[in-house]
Every structure is written in C-alpha cells, then in structure tokens.
Design a protein around this nucleic acid. Structure first.
Lengths: 228, 228
DNA sequence: TACATATGTTACCGGTCAGTAACTAACGCA
DNA sequence: TGCGTTAGTTACTGACCGGTAACATATGTA
C-alpha cells in the first residue's frame, strides 16, 4: 500500500492566515484530493507550513478535524444551494435545474473528484466516527429538499421525482472519480434531469409556479450544452 | 481514528477450503464491510483462521490481493449481468429493466453497503495502484453496455439514455452507504428507470425489438413494487 | 519593562502497518 | 520409507500512525 503521501506538499503559507485556518484549509484540500485515511496529521501540518504540535493546539484530534471539515463542507454546500435557488423563487422547476447546474459546475467540475461527503461516507465506516452523523443528516436534508422542490413543482409523484434527482446527483459526483476530465456520463446529467422533469411535471409548467415570467429556457439550454 | 478492527473476527474455517481461498473470501468480505484501507493483512489472515505468513505465501502483497478481489468482483458482476439479460434476448428495454432489477436486489440489497468497485475508487486514489485499472475498465464497460442497450432499444438519444441509466446505477449503490436498511432513495430507482425509458424510447416499443411477444409488463411492474 | 498569547522545535510514547526469516509440523503420494 | 507440498509458529524489521511533554522563541500589549 504505497503512498505518495510523504512527498513534500507545497505549504500554503497564505500570508496573513492564522495557523488554525491554514491547517484547516490544507486538511480540506488534502482530504478531498487524496482521501481522508490516506492523509496523516503530519502531512497536514507540514502542508500548512507548521508542525504537528501546532496542529494539536488547534484541534483535539484528527477525527474532530475531519468532522469539522465535513461540517464546513455542508455549510458551503447549502450556501451554494440557496444562492442558486434564490433567483428563481416561485419557479420550482427552474430551481431544480439551477441546483443541478450549480452542482455540475462545482462538485462535479473539471478538477473535482467527487463529493467530499459521499467520499467520506465510503471511508468512514465505523458509525462511532464524529463525522458520521454530519454525513447522515446532510444526505437526509438533500433528499428532503429535492422532494420538497418536486412537490412545489407539482410533480405527479414528488417522492419518486425527488429521489430520482438525488440518485442522479449522487451518481454524477461518484462517476467523477473514475471518469476524470470532461468525458464521463456526467455530461448527460442535466439532460436526464430535464427529461425527468418533463415526465413528472405537468406540461407547460402551469404548476404551482407563481412567477412564470422568470422562465429562461434559452439560458438553461445553453448551460446544458456548456457541460458537454 | 479508532478502529473496531482489532476485535476478533469470527474465522470462516469453511471446512474443505484451501488457505488461499479462505483468505480470499475473508478479504473480500472485510474489504466490503469495513473498507480496504481499514482492514489490515493481519486481520484478514486471522479472520481466515490462519496467519500472516500463510497470507504472503498466497499473495504477493496486499495491493495485489486487493486488485484480485476487484477482478473477481468484476467477473461476478458480468456473470450476473449476462444471466439477467439472457432471458430477454431481443427485448432490449426489458433487458435494461432486468439489469436494474438484478442490481437493485443484490449490490443494493438489504445488507449491502454500496458497490465494491465504486467504494474502491474512493479509497484507492493513487493511480499507481494495481486495482485502479480494474475499476476504470469496469466502469467504462458498464457505460458501453448501457449505451449499447439503449441503442438497441431504439432510444432517441442512446448516449444520453445510457449515461442517465449509469448515473442512476452509481447513485443507487452510493446512497446505500448512508441510507441503510430499506428506506433510502433507492426505493425509487426502478421507477426512475422506467420513466426514462418511457421518455427516450419510441412508444409501444415497436423499436428494434424483434421478439416483442416477450413483453411482460405486469411482471416488471410487480418487481418495481416489491422494492418499495 | 513585564506579561500573555501564539507559535516553533525536538524528542518521545505506544501502537499498528506491510512484509520477511527461519524453523517446525502435518499430510499426500510414490 | 522418503520426499515434496502445504501450512502453522514465532520473532523480527523499518516505517508510519495519532498523540504528548517540555522547552524555546516570537510578538503584541499594558
């Protein structure tokens, strides 16, 4: 089980950052790129331009750091979610599309390697790990929100549509680990979403949509093409 | 990073099995349940009712064992695939459904925790690992076959449909890690597949389907319900 | 000047990891 | 009987792991 782990990692000095923040940022990056179990405390501290002692002055344990990284990931994810949904208030179908466009361009973007939360779910199997509950509640909330949006959009079967969307979301992130670059099945993720929406949602999106004037089909079509 | 790993694992003596086979079987089970990195060579040997020395008489290294486990997984997967597809030769739409029914009941079954290949893709990030190529070629073949089936079924956009199906497949396996038991989004996986098929395939399945008499919509509907 | 806070340095602990050496015991077979 | 194969046993190596102790050095502030 050879690791390229010990190879010196370029320290992210980052000028005016406190040690704790540098460690935190470095840890998130290394965990995401190389995996949680593959990255040791020493490598994190060294990568942050400090040493192990300073690490343990800022964090109680590696497990706690991992959990905190996951919590930060969740917070950022919801910020992105809310930001992409906000401009389309009253148009739930468009909101769903916006969520996927955002996800496809970020968590599944060019240099991305999957979803940090999903990856952590694979690596942290012992249910005593403090990060476990973070992952669980996050995934449940994703499911709840997608089902809620499906309901608001007037889906014939909101639970089925919401779950189908979630499966696409999870699958899109996961395939990024094997199909790097721009060629994987993820290129057809958005079109799958639209197909499902067309199938489950009432035609002509009369639905519960209040501000129907906000529709911009040309823009969404362009975004779909941009992924390919 | 505490592990429940050292707790004695019940040895699978398995009477008349050779040491190598016992080690192999034990390794696959432990890797799948606890993760590859979380399981040490000692734990595998001990779990197989033998010791580390016998392990290294049968396998060159842990990495090689991992790769061989993945190869075995791939072989079994294609056996299952072929077996579920064979009874529906000439009815590609039904074949797609059968593949999903098979996958949902096995790799995503009751006590399952995701797809061994996908999980390995998360855990083995160094592209020098001998298992890496196994995963990559396997995923590519899954994609190729799904697109091929979509083409045979006469899909309006075979690449899009094939990829959408693959995303559902990947997502279904992945959600099993967080939503254990029977309650996760996977319960709506099959209905999502049918919806996509209805959307992409020509109505009344006239398509390239040769033996249209093989249609058994009642059976497939029942299977879809059984998952819920 | 004096003190508190934040950080760096070095050395260490006990444990686990993958992997090896050397020897011994059982079994099948000719 | 003798030999080869298969497997169990014990002890070991060197590296790395997460985590800690003790001490030294900055820097800012009062």
């Amino acid at each position: 089980m050879k690791e390229a782990r010990s190879t010196s990692v370029a320290p992210c000095a980052e000028g005016g950052m406190r040690v704790r923040d540098r460690i935190f940022r470095t840890a998130r990056e290394l965990f995401y790129r190389q995996g949680i179990r593959a990255v040791g405390v020493d490598a994190i501290a060294c990568g942050a331009g400090t040493n192990k002692m300073s690490f343990y002055r800022s964090f109680a344990s590696k497990d706690e750091l991992v959990a905190e990284c996951l919590r930060a990931q969740v917070t950022e994810y919801w910020e992105r979610w809310d930001a992409s949904v906000a401009p389309h208030a009253g148009d739930p179908r468009r909101q769903i599309e916006a969520v996927f466009e955002s996800s496809m361009s970020k968590s599944c973007g060019e240099d991305a390697c999957g979803c940090p939360l999903s990856n952590a779910a694979v690596e942290l199997r012992e249910d005593t790990h403090p990060g476990h509950e973070v992952i669980r509640s996050y995934k449940s909330e994703v499911r709840r929100r997608l089902r809620q949006l499906a309901r608001e959009a007037g889906a014939s079967d909101a639970e089925a549509l919401g779950d189908a969307l979630m499966l696409l979301l999870e699958g899109s992130a996961m395939t990024r680990l094997t199909f790097a670059g721009r060629g994987g099945p993820i290129v057809n993720s958005l079109s799958a979403v639209k197909t499902l929406l067309d199938a489950y949602l009432p035609a002509k999106r009369k639905a519960a949509s209040v501000a129907a004037k906000k529709n911009r089909p040309a823009r969404s079509a362009k975004a779909a093409e941009a992924v390919r």
